[in-house]
Each structure stands twice: as C-alpha cells, then as structure tokens.
Amino acid sequence: MANSAKAPCQTILVVEDDASIRMTLRLALEMEGYTVCTASHGQEALTQLSQMSAPCLILLDLMMPIMNGWEFIKALRANAHFAPIPVALVTAYSEEAAHFEGSQALVKKPIDLEILLQVVRRFCG
C-alpha cells in the first residue's frame, strides 16, 4: 500500500444519497489510503461530524432528501467548530454550484476519478 503511507490518518466525509456512488467513492478513496466516513444526507452528516474528529475534506452532493447540500453548508458554516472544514461539491448542478458561496472546490458529475483525486489531494495532501 504505497499510497497509504503518503497520507496517514487523513479522514474524508462523503455526503451522498445515492448508495452506488457512495460506495464507489468510499472504495476509491480507501484505495488511495484515506479514511472515509459516509452519510446519506445533510442531517446524518452533521450527526457524523459531531461524533468524529474534524475531517480534512467534505465531499458533498447537493440534491439529497431530508437535508440537501445547500442547507447542510449553511448549517456547517454557522457552527464555529465545523466552519473551517473545506467542502468540495460533487454535483451535476455545476451552474448553480458555481455561484454557491461556502464551498472550496467543485467536482462535476459524472465523476472523473482522476479529477476527484486531484481535488482530494489538494486538501488532504
């Protein structure tokens, strides 16, 4: 596992309602040696955050049930503990997301694995 040595103990939170994508992302990131936590919507993600140490990056889908990505970012930035965590949007809604303040990066769907990993590496080393 050559990659795991490069970035030990770096945690990434994946917030994505689609189970397939969630699973694939988890696999892909784990293969790169990252620790991955997942949530299927914003509410669940907030709960996860309060129970773990701050991740180096949140990969956030926008359209989700219960609490969508927009609402989640708003809640995230409102919380002093979570506010500094960088967020990368993973969405098909590129136009809307481009105008959305509060995120640090954008990965368009359909996801290109290399682009995703580049973004992840930028924030997590």
Binding site: I21, A28, Y93, K109, I111
Partner: peptide, 25 residues
C-alpha cells in the same frame, strides 16, 4: 432528466474506472 441520468452514469463510470484501477494495480 439529464441530471437524473447523470447519477447512474456517474456511478457506472466511477465503477468502471475503479475496476480497471484494481485490475491494473
């Protein structure tokens, strides 16, 4: 519709890439 199609396509693409990577590595 395009967006709705993008999600499974996205998953398929990711899955394929990941599989290839696995096989390669």
């Amino acid at each position: 519709a395009a967006h709705e199609l993008r999600t499974p396509v996205s998953a398929l693409k990711l899955g394929a890439e990941l599989s290839l990577k696995l096989i390669k590595n």
